[in-house]
């Protein structure tokens, strides 16, 4: 390697564009994909489903980003960022698809930055404040188990774009669930302190389970995963206590608005700007 090369050519053209992280290049993420919606698909429902799944992913990625520089070990720093980046990538593709089929022609940033809390359709579990590592692991376990089961179904959706996004997501979510399950077992089994924290986290998460199962029937699969993991970690299966309200209907906890205020602050301060 020439000593100067990498810096001197900064302002010139480059041929190594494949090095841009996935989805961070300049092309529309769905560029070149046939975006026509097949006949018989309800576009209103398709767009709404895409937005809800994108909102879950974006809000979860935002919570995972909050771990940056705060993770218990460097390996976890890298892993949590990986998961956050995967979810952010899923959100971008899903927003792009929503914008194509809902007739608005909106881009991903219009959905992420210029809607208010009441317009978001994520489940409330995603927006709850970070908590400790045990809470983040339990939340990730529940959300990734549900999302994986749901994406497996969606990979045969009649809309080929959503099906492709889901198929790509399945590989990512398999890792997310694996990561969360391994840590759940480690923490459940590890020390008295980690066990105590895991029990508390399971109790905190339990009221928000039900919301995941209202529209999509993958409940049995998710419950089976949780049962297996809690057993392996010597933890009690949490008792489900439903809570009024529904994130999918835009009824959120008080935690979503501040999360969005932070996420949207720069974009909204400069609405005319391009970045």
């Amino acid at each position: 390697m020439n000593d100067d090369h990498v810096y001197m050519t900064l302002a010139e053209g480059h041929e190594d564009d494949s090095r841009w992280a996935y989805g961070t290049g300049f092309e529309d993420p769905l560029h070149g994909v046939d975006t026509a919606v097949p006949e018989g698909v309800d576009t209103g429902r398709l767009a709404a489903d895409c937005v809800a799944l994108a909102d879950d992913a974006l809000v979860s990625a935002q919570r995972l980003a909050e771990w940056t520089t705060r993770a218990p070990e460097l390996e976890e720093e890298v892993a949590l960022a990986n998961i956050g980046l995967d979810l952010l990538g899923q959100a971008r593709l899903l927003y792009a698809r929503a914008g194509q089929v809902d007739g608005s022609g909106r881009g991903e940033d219009a959905y992420a930055y210029f809607r208010d809390a009441g317009d978001f359709r994520n489940v409330r579990l995603a927006e709850l404040p970070g908590g400790d590592f045990a809470f983040s692991i339990v939340r990730l376990l529940v959300l990734s188990s549900w999302r994986l089961a749901h994406f497996e179904e969606l990979s045969s959706h009649p809309d080929p774009v959503l099906a492709a996004i889901a198929a790509k997501g399945v590989k990512e979510l398999t890792y997310h669930r694996q990561y969360a399950a391994e840590w759940a077992v480690r923490l459940g089994d590890g020390t008295q302190e980690s066990h105590r924290r895991m029990r508390k986290a399971l109790e905190q998460v339990a009221p928000y389970f039900g919301e995941l199962f209202t529209a999509h029937d993958v409940r049995d699969e998710v419950v089976a995963v949780l049962r297996q993991v809690t057993e392996a970690g010597g933890l009690p299966m949490p008792v489900y206590r439903p809570l009024p309200g529904a994130g999918r209907a835009g009824e959120h906890t008080e935690h979503l608005a501040p999360l969005l205020a932070e996420l949207q602050s720069v974009a909204r301060a400069h609405p005319e700007a391009t970045w």
């Binding site: 961070t24 980003a65 909050e66 952010l88 971008r92 940033d109 992420a112 930055y113």
Partner: peptide, 22 residues
């Protein structure tokens, strides 16, 4: 990262900071 003004910039920055951990 939590305030990046577009999703593309958010992904770039998130990935960069992750690289630094690596």
């Amino acid at each position: 990262i939590t305030r990046a003004p577009s999703l593309r910039r958010k992904a770039i920055l998130f990935a960069k900071v992750q690289d630094e951990a690596g």
